[in-house]
């Protein structure tokens, strides 16, 4: 995926040895998923699948379940997340990263690890609460001040947070309706309305990842998407290129946080 995944974990009662074993299994799962879903490797199962070539049963089941989640995300986001509208064939990459990190975290959870955070390029899945039953405090990276935070959010144990944006150099998101780079529809005058950072908090990191991607692409049209997300149980927060911030009313800003 080209993404760095970092772990922090508190073994708890299972002890260090069992925790390390779980960590190893979790990392191997990430590599396995990467091999299966990589759209850069021409012989990966996903690459073969998208051009109609044969894949084995296990690969088929995994791909199908990911695409089912993609379908749900497409529906909730009214098509602003649409892997079937990507050039080159169906491309679930915008959801797979969150899905993979979620799978990696669930391995730790099943092993009985007391608490953990798995962070894959800014997509974060949590296991258990932070110390003393407190929610996790997660900083949201400032879109154009690299060492600063835009805000801090509180994440309940087991919850997920995903951030997507258009500020990383070289990164681009495709607008599924125009099939061009997101933001191209706005032109020069509309560029300040461009969403440079979108954060989604909710139970599933796979869906949060897709939803954040949709919000980053949708720009000002994201207001209605954000409302749909709330109905599905996901809160969101968007930062525009002109510095304006919008958040759904239940978005879990940490009480003591101050904006950058």
């Amino acid at each position: 995926m080209g993404t760095v995944v970092s772990y922090r974990l508190e073994p708890g009662e299972i002890g260090d040895a069992a925790a390390r074993a779980a960590l190893g299994a979790s990392i191997r799962e990430l590599h396995r998923i990467d091999r299966l879903f990589s759209t850069f490797a021409p012989d990966s199962a996903m690459s073969r699948f998208r051009v109609g070539e044969a894949v084995d049963e296990v690969e088929h089941e995994e791909i199908t379940s990911v695409l089912r989640l993609c379908g749900r995300a497409r529906e909730i986001t009214a098509g602003w997340f649409d892997p079937w509208a990507m050039p080159g064939g169906v491309d679930p990459t915008g959801l797979v990263k969150g899905w993979a990190v979620e799978r990696a975290a669930s391995i730790l959870a099943r092993a009985g690890v007391e608490a953990a955070l798995v962070n894959g390029g800014g997509d974060i899945a949590s296991v258990g609460p932070a110390t003393r039953g407190q929610p996790w405090r997660i900083g949201i990276r400032h879109p154009w001040r690299q060492e600063a935070l835009a805000c801090v959010v509180e994440l309940e144990g087991g919850g997920a947070v995903a951030t997507s944006g258009t500020y990383e150099r070289g990164a681009h998101l495709i607008d599924p309706f125009t099939r061009r780079r997101a933001g191209a529809r706005h032109g020069a005058l509309g560029s300040v309305a461009r969403v440079v950072s979108a954060t989604v908090v909710g139970p599933s990191l796979a869906l949060a990842d897709a939803m954040a991607t949709a919000l980053a692409v949708a720009g000002s049209a994201g207001v209605s998407v954000a409302a749909s997300l709330v109905e599905a149980g996901y809160e969101s927060y968007r930062i525009s290129a002109d510095g304006r911030e919008e958040a759904t009313s239940g978005f879990p800003f940490a009480a003591a946080a101050a904006p950058a």
């Binding site: 080209g2 993404t3 760095v4 970092s6 922090r8 955070l117 962070n119 390029g121 800014g122 997509d123 974060i124 932070a130 996790w136 405090r137 997660i138 900083g139 949201i140 990276r141 400032h142 879109p143 001040r145 690299q146 060492e147 600063a148 935070l149 801090v152 959010v153 947070v161 995903a162 951030t163 997507s164 944006g165 258009t166 500020y167 990383e168 150099r169 070289g170 990164a171 950072s197 954060t199 980053a216 940490a254 003591a256 946080a257 101050a258 950058a260």
Partner: peptide, 28 residues
Amino acid sequence: EVLHAQSAQISAVSGATYTSEAYAASLQ
């Protein structure tokens, strides 16, 4: 703001980090 991130006592940072290179340069 650089020090603010530390004083905010966070456990992790969520941001759009697409590459390993960008991660290496990041606050996280």
